[in-house]
Lab assay of single mutants.
Amino acid sequence: MQYKLVINGKTLKGETTTKAVDAETAEKAFKQYANDNGVDGVWTYDDATKTFTVTE
Rank of each mutant, 00 (worst) to 15 (best):
1 M>H: 14
1 M>D: 15
1 M>G: 11
1 M>E: 14
1 M>F: 14
1 M>C: 12
2 Q>I: 15
2 Q>M: 15
2 Q>N: 12
2 Q>R: 11
2 Q>S: 10
2 Q>E: 13
2 Q>D: 13
2 Q>W: 15
2 Q>P: 07
3 Y>N: 01
3 Y>C: 02
3 Y>V: 01
3 Y>A: 01
3 Y>M: 02
4 K>N: 08
4 K>T: 15
4 K>V: 12
4 K>H: 11
4 K>C: 07
4 K>L: 09
4 K>D: 03
4 K>F: 14
5 L>G: 01
5 L>F: 05
5 L>E: 01
6 V>G: 02
6 V>D: 03
6 V>M: 07
6 V>W: 05
6 V>K: 08
6 V>R: 07
7 I>A: 03
7 I>C: 04
7 I>W: 09
7 I>T: 03
7 I>H: 03
7 I>G: 02
7 I>M: 07
7 I>D: 01
8 N>E: 09
8 N>C: 12
8 N>R: 11
8 N>V: 14
8 N>P: 03
9 G>D: 03
9 G>T: 15
9 G>R: 04
9 G>V: 14
9 G>F: 12
10 K>C: 12
10 K>Q: 12
10 K>W: 10
10 K>V: 13
10 K>Y: 10
11 T>M: 11
11 T>V: 11
11 T>W: 14
11 T>C: 14
12 L>E: 06
12 L>I: 13
12 L>A: 07
12 L>Q: 09
12 L>C: 13
12 L>G: 08
12 L>V: 12
12 L>W: 14
13 K>E: 05
13 K>V: 09
13 K>N: 09
13 K>P: 06
13 K>T: 10
14 G>P: 05
14 G>K: 13
14 G>I: 15
14 G>W: 15
14 G>T: 15
14 G>M: 15
15 E>L: 10
15 E>G: 08
15 E>N: 07
15 E>R: 07
15 E>M: 11
15 E>W: 14
15 E>I: 12
15 E>T: 13
16 T>L: 14
16 T>G: 05
16 T>A: 12
16 T>S: 09
16 T>N: 06
16 T>H: 14
17 T>I: 10
17 T>Y: 15
17 T>D: 05
17 T>L: 09
17 T>F: 15
17 T>G: 05
18 T>S: 05
18 T>Y: 13
18 T>E: 05
18 T>F: 13
18 T>L: 15
18 T>P: 02
18 T>G: 04
19 K>N: 14
19 K>M: 15
19 K>W: 15
19 K>D: 11
19 K>E: 14
19 K>S: 13
19 K>I: 15
19 K>A: 09
19 K>V: 15
20 A>F: 09
20 A>I: 03
20 A>G: 04
20 A>V: 04
20 A>K: 03
20 A>R: 03
21 V>I: 13
21 V>C: 10
21 V>S: 10
21 V>F: 12
22 D>N: 11
22 D>V: 03
22 D>C: 05
22 D>L: 04
22 D>Y: 04
23 A>D: 05
23 A>S: 10
23 A>E: 07
23 A>M: 13
24 E>D: 10
24 E>N: 10
24 E>V: 12
24 E>P: 11
24 E>R: 12
24 E>K: 12
25 T>R: 07
25 T>I: 06
25 T>K: 06
25 T>P: 03
25 T>V: 08
25 T>Q: 13
25 T>E: 13
25 T>L: 07
26 A>Y: 01
26 A>K: 00
26 A>V: 03
26 A>D: 00
26 A>G: 02
26 A>M: 01
26 A>C: 02
26 A>W: 01
26 A>I: 02
26 A>Q: 01
26 A>S: 02
27 E>C: 13
27 E>H: 11
27 E>W: 15
27 E>A: 12
27 E>N: 05
27 E>Q: 11
27 E>I: 12
27 E>R: 14
27 E>Y: 15
28 K>V: 10
28 K>S: 08
28 K>Y: 09
29 A>N: 10
29 A>I: 15
29 A>Y: 15
29 A>M: 13
29 A>G: 05
29 A>C: 10
29 A>S: 10
29 A>P: 02
30 F>S: 00
30 F>W: 02
30 F>P: 00
30 F>E: 00
30 F>G: 00
30 F>I: 02
31 K>P: 00
31 K>I: 08
31 K>E: 03
31 K>A: 05
31 K>V: 06
31 K>C: 05
31 K>G: 03
31 K>M: 09
31 K>S: 04
32 Q>H: 07
32 Q>G: 05
32 Q>K: 14
32 Q>V: 10
32 Q>C: 06
32 Q>T: 09
32 Q>M: 09
33 Y>F: 12
33 Y>I: 06
33 Y>D: 02
33 Y>L: 06
33 Y>C: 04
33 Y>K: 03
34 A>D: 00
34 A>L: 10
34 A>K: 01
35 N>I: 15
35 N>D: 11
35 N>Y: 14
35 N>P: 01
35 N>T: 13
35 N>R: 15
35 N>V: 14
35 N>H: 15
36 D>Y: 08
36 D>A: 13
36 D>K: 10
36 D>R: 08
36 D>S: 10
36 D>V: 10
36 D>I: 10
37 N>A: 13
37 N>H: 15
37 N>M: 15
37 N>K: 13
37 N>W: 13
37 N>R: 15
37 N>D: 03
37 N>Y: 13
38 G>W: 05
38 G>L: 06
38 G>M: 07
38 G>P: 02
38 G>D: 07
38 G>H: 08
38 G>F: 07
38 G>E: 07
39 V>P: 02
39 V>H: 04
39 V>T: 03
39 V>Y: 06
39 V>C: 04
40 D>G: 09
40 D>M: 14
40 D>L: 12
40 D>S: 13
40 D>T: 14
40 D>A: 13
40 D>R: 14
40 D>Q: 13
40 D>P: 04
40 D>V: 14
41 G>Q: 01
41 G>C: 02
41 G>R: 01
41 G>F: 03
41 G>A: 02
41 G>S: 02
41 G>H: 02
41 G>T: 02
41 G>V: 02
41 G>Y: 03
42 V>H: 10
42 V>S: 09
42 V>A: 09
42 V>E: 11
42 V>Y: 09
42 V>I: 12
43 W>E: 00
43 W>H: 00
43 W>C: 02
43 W>I: 03
43 W>N: 00
43 W>A: 00
43 W>Y: 02
43 W>M: 04
43 W>G: 00
43 W>V: 02
44 T>I: 08
44 T>D: 09
44 T>P: 00
44 T>V: 10
44 T>M: 08
44 T>K: 06
44 T>Q: 09
45 Y>C: 01
45 Y>L: 02
45 Y>D: 00
45 Y>Q: 01
45 Y>R: 02
45 Y>P: 00
45 Y>F: 07
46 D>F: 04
46 D>L: 04
46 D>C: 08
46 D>G: 02
46 D>V: 05
46 D>I: 05
46 D>A: 04
47 D>E: 14
47 D>A: 14
47 D>H: 11
47 D>C: 06
48 A>M: 12
48 A>D: 11
48 A>I: 11
48 A>L: 11
48 A>P: 06
49 T>R: 06
49 T>S: 12
50 K>H: 13
50 K>S: 06
50 K>M: 10
50 K>R: 14
50 K>V: 04
51 T>I: 06
51 T>M: 04
51 T>N: 02
51 T>W: 02
52 F>Y: 06
52 F>H: 02
52 F>C: 01
52 F>L: 01
52 F>G: 00
52 F>I: 02
52 F>E: 00
52 F>A: 00
52 F>N: 00
53 T>I: 05
53 T>G: 03
53 T>E: 05
53 T>M: 08
53 T>F: 09
53 T>A: 04
54 V>S: 01
54 V>N: 01
54 V>K: 01
54 V>T: 02
55 T>D: 07
55 T>R: 05
55 T>H: 08
56 E>R: 03
56 E>L: 09
56 E>C: 06
56 E>A: 07
56 E>K: 04
